[in-house]
């Protein structure tokens, strides 16, 4: 059995649009997506214009799903 993943030419991180304006620059370009930073994985809502983070929720294991997740 081979690992899956050859269906697409390239892969991208999805940035979901979020209602509202940036509290720092006022632009309405808020997006939600996962990032790695100091402290590991976070689900962030950030302004695409100035990179200000409106929120950062820690996400210990991030988007990777382990086979042993059935134990949790």
């Amino acid at each position: 059995m081979s690992a899956p993943g050859q269906e697409h030419e390239h892969v991208s991180v999805e940035r979901a649009a979020v209602e509202g304006a940036c509290s720092e620059c006022g632009e309405s370009q808020l997006r939600r997506y996962p990032v790695l930073s100091e402290g590991g994985w976070y689900r962030v809502v950030k302004c695409e214009s100035c990179l200000h983070s409106e929120s950062r929720e820690p996400d210990p294991v991030g988007p990777v799903v382990l086979a042993s997740v059935v134990l949790v």
Binding site: S12, V13, V35, L36, V64
Partner: peptide, 19 residues
């Protein structure tokens, strides 16, 4: 890393997932 966010597409050659 404090001021650096890294976005890694899951399932990519640079962000592979099991198996």
């Amino acid at each position: 890393y404090r001021d650096i966010d890294v976005l890694v597409p899951t399932g990519s050659v640079i962000g592979a997932g099991p198996p």
